[in-house]
Design a binder for these strands. Structure first.
Lengths: 144, 144
DNA sequence: CTAACTGCAAAAGCTTTGCTTTTCA
DNA sequence: TGAAAAGCAAAGCTTTTGCAGTTAG
């Protein structure tokens, strides 16, 4: 447990958002100005292997990290990419709903909700563009 | 509708797998040897905007494409990254289970099952390494 | 004819990796 | 002191983009 790893873990625990590696880097850098991005990536990977944090592979392009290690779902804004915890019970047994025909040994599942976050909703309403934008949103929403 | 776009759509419809852009490129190239990867990307994007195909953002690093435009779920092998359709009804109303406290305008959801595909199961059993591997799998499985 | 599209190549964005030096137990 | 890890920079992989030339309608 190096100083770097400790600070990364501490800072991640303080963050309620679900930061990308780069966002973690920016915060940690305020405490350890000489830390490198590679070190952040390596430690986030190691911490997730140790089960001390979760690596999230949501939609969108980049990986995110979560100091909450309990199984839970997320909701993501399709406009600004903000991610929050989804307030919903975790469905332990949803895999039972799968037909056996897959031939797979099922190990788990991932559920992500998509929507517009409060901030993006408000902005869209202010500009009176929600209707105009709705095609865009509908389009984005089709790719689940 | 250029020749390139038509062939991309035709070939994707023939593919039962859920190919990445590069895999589409390789197949289309057999018909149009001079097509470029950029054209494949551009057309896959356009076709998905037109609603003629689906762009899938599953876990893992790369985007995949699906000529099946109905809403449905997927199951992915955590060992080899193979993706199949998940034989399960689509839960139209699952968003109702979300607590209103999010403040989000919920537009949709995405559900992905993770597991070991038949081929990888078999290989693991042959090598009698399923137990040895299970830590690895459990680790991978924790990142949902 | 011209707006849309292609091929090509370069660039961009995120993540991983090789290597040398440093740190920690 | 030796194994693990850091810092730095380069490379890797997927995707996007700029541009000049081509094509479909």
């Amino acid at each position: 447990m190096t100083r770097q790893r400790r600070v990364i873990l501490e800072e991640l625990k303080k963050m309620k958002s679900h930061p990308s590696a780069d966002e973690v880097y920016e915060v940690v850098r305020q405490h350890l100005p000489r830390i490198s991005l590679g070190t952040v990536y390596r430690n986030l990977e190691i911490l997730s292997e140790l089960g001390q944090i979760q690596k999230l592979e949501l939609g969108g392009t980049l990986k995110r990290f979560d100091s909450n290690t309990r199984k839970h779902y997320h909701i993501r804004c399709i406009n600004c990419d903000r991610v929050d915890d989804a307030p919903m019970v975790f469905m332990e047994n949803i895999e039972d709903a799968l037909d056996d025909s897959t031939g797979y040994k099922v190990i788990g599942h991932r559920l992500e909700f998509l929507g517009l976050c409060p901030g993006c909703m408000e902005k869209a309403l202010e500009r009176n563009t929600l209707d105009a934008d709705s095609d865009t949103y509908a389009q984005k929403a089709s790719n689940f």
